[in-house]
Design a protein around this nucleic acid. Structure first.
Length: 498
RNA sequence: GGCCCCUUCGUCUAGCGGCCUAGGAUGCCACCCUUUCAAGGUGGAGACACGGGUUCGAGUCCCGUAGGGGCUACCA
């Protein structure tokens, strides 16, 4: 039944098109994809749109966008095509209907005419569907059908015994058959349920390994029984643990929420939120791969190509994980630090433009090396270095709370700034090297610490507490503009002085 | 409620009976360095859920308890 497959490896991601892609689903896709790539197999995308009510138009584009962005290439799917298509379930209805009917013929399934009201009553009574149509005479069923009574097809679950499932991640799992219901295979609208559809498709598409979320584990025995009733060879199944909220409470929710564990910030969970938040796809891949699986060798940072060489579904942890979002910020900053200047320019330019700045490419190239170590996300370029691209003439002096640094007072700050002006003014070359030595000398003679002087200048010139290095910044701004800003700061802090 | 899964530092994890006085990473704290931010460096606090077994020996195997999670639809 579940003996190791010697078939070529073919895995699939089979999402429902119900809206934006959730990070949990994407991680399932990632593990399936990695497994296929590790074994030189194929990765298939299949759209499971058997619930007409929940289908949201445009979802497939979102799914494709997410996979594309992360670099998970698809071998067969609705966009790519392939010899086992169509890859959209609503276009395969006939197959499901055929096999459902076949199961009825084989007496492994039956028509059930229970109304929604009846079902609701049974549920209220506690035990669920009571199999009242399981042994309903065929001629009477035909009668009801002839009268136009709607019906579903239900699977005849074995009434006793146990079903043992072999899960790649946790090994054998045993279930009492009597705990399971006669699940609906085909709905009254002619659409299949997941239970039937995924089996027919996985068999037809030659899927060798199914990586799916753990919420399917309880219906695993049902699926095993359906595979057997159909007489088909099962793929191997791996039930992936879920991502919990950052506080460890409950399944990671779809809605944006705030968590103290994430610094009180709302955490991204939808794929487009990761894109918008300025994360790099490589960092997100690294991040996701490291939850529930690890590369080993105490190596936290590794490429997708490296992961591909080692990944195995068998090594995935069976335990659920809290969503370690803080690690993504760190990983992202590491990837940004390692990115080339050109690459960063390419990423940063549209973000600055979107923020309303006119970006001069030469200037950007000058600025990028200065701020790369300060970026946790590409978005940070706006608060940290946006001022380079603003209209310099309209620069407003920062307020006192920014200007006056730690261990400094209004008076000492004013004194430092006032004294620095002639020092900078006297410089022939305004290079950051020249500034550094001149200002260091000035600090020494004035009795202030380097840090006190440098920090005050940083705030005066940039208007920010966090900024690129002060002297490099002033070099780019030029002597005139830098001194103008220091004078403005002086005014701001003293109220009137010029 | 019933069934199933899970349980190592706050968090992500290493550990597959002796190498564990439990390792790495992140986060936090301290110090160093420094163009007082950031980055970088060094160090620190911080975990085998609990109770029984099995064994010469248990974080590692078994059982129970507790806690967490999932499922319990004509949704997936």
């Amino acid at each position: 039944m579940t003996s190791p497959s010697t078939r070529p490896v073919r895995t699939r991601y089979a999402p429902s098109p119900t809206g934006p892609q959730h990070i949990g689903g994407i991680r399932t896709a990632l593990f399936a994809w990695l497994y296929a790539r590790r074994h030189g197999g194929q990765f298939i995308l299949r759209i499971e749109d058997t619930d007409q009510k929940r289908t949201v138009p445009g979802s497939v584009d979102l799914i494709l966008q997410a996979l594309d962005w992360l670099g998970m290439d698809i071998d067969e799917g609705p966009r790519e095509g392939g010899e086992f298509g169509p890859y959209v379930q609503s276009e395969r209805l006939e197959m499901y209907q055929t096999w459902a009917a076949w199961l009825v013929d084989q007496d492994r399934a039956y028509k059930c005419f229970a109304t929604p009201e009846e079902l609701a009553e049974m549920r209220k009574a506690g035990a669920g569907y009571d199999r009242r149509y399981r042994d309903f005479p065929a001629d009477r069923a035909s009668e009801l059908e002839a009268q136009g009574k709607p019906c579903v097809i239900r699977f005849k679950m074995p009434l006793g015994g146990v079903t043992i499932g072999d899960d790649m991640i946790r090994g054998p799992v045993e279930f009492d058959n009597e705990q399971l219901q006669d699940a609906v295979l085909l709905k009254s609208d002619g659409y299949p349920t997941y239970h039937l559809a995924h089996i027919v498709d996985d068999r037809h598409m030659r899927i060798s390994h199914v990586a799916r979320a753990i919420e399917w584990l309880p219906s695993f025995p049902l699926h095993i029984q359906i595979w057997r009733a159909l007489g088909w060879k099962m793929p191997q199944y791996a039930h992936l643990p879920v991502l919990l909220n950052p506080n460890g409470k409950g399944k990671l929710s779809k809605r944006k929420q705030q968590f103290a564990d994430a610094g009180g910030k709302s955490v991204p969970v939808l794929m487009h939120e990761f894109i918008d938040a300025g994360y790099l796809p490589s960092a997100v891949m690294n991040f996701l791969t490291n939850i529930g699986w690890n590369y080993g060798d105490d190596e936290e940072i590794f490429s997708t190509a490296q992961a591909m060489e080692r990944f195995d579904l068998k090594d995935v942890s069976p335990a659920n994980s809290a969503y370690p979002i803080a690690k993504l910020d760190w990983l992202n900053s590491q990837y940004i630090k390692r990115a080339s200047v050109d690459e960063l320019c390419r990423l940063l330019k549209p973000i600055l433009e979107e923020a309303g700045y006119a970006v001069d490419e030469e200037r950007l190239k000058q600025v990028v090396p200065l701020l790369r170590v300060r970026l946790k996300s590409t978005r940070d370029v706006v608060p940290i270095a946006g001022f380079f691209f603003a209209d310099w003439a309209s620069f407003k002096a920062p307020s006192a709370d920014i200007l006056i640094q730690r261990k400094m007072s209004r008076e000492s700050t004013a004194a430092v700034l006032r004294g620095a002006i002639p020092v900078l003014q006297a410089l022939e070359s305004f290079s950051h090297v020249a500034q550094h030595s001149a200002v260091t000398a000035y600090a020494k003679s004035s009795g202030f610490k380097n840090g006190q002087v440098f920090g005050s200048l940083r705030a005066a010139v940039t208007g920010q507490k966090v900024s690129p290095p002060t002297f490099e910044t002033m070099e780019i701004l030029g002597k005139q503009e830098s001194i103008r800003r220091i004078k403005l700061a002086l005014q701001s802090i003293t109220g009137s002085e010029s």
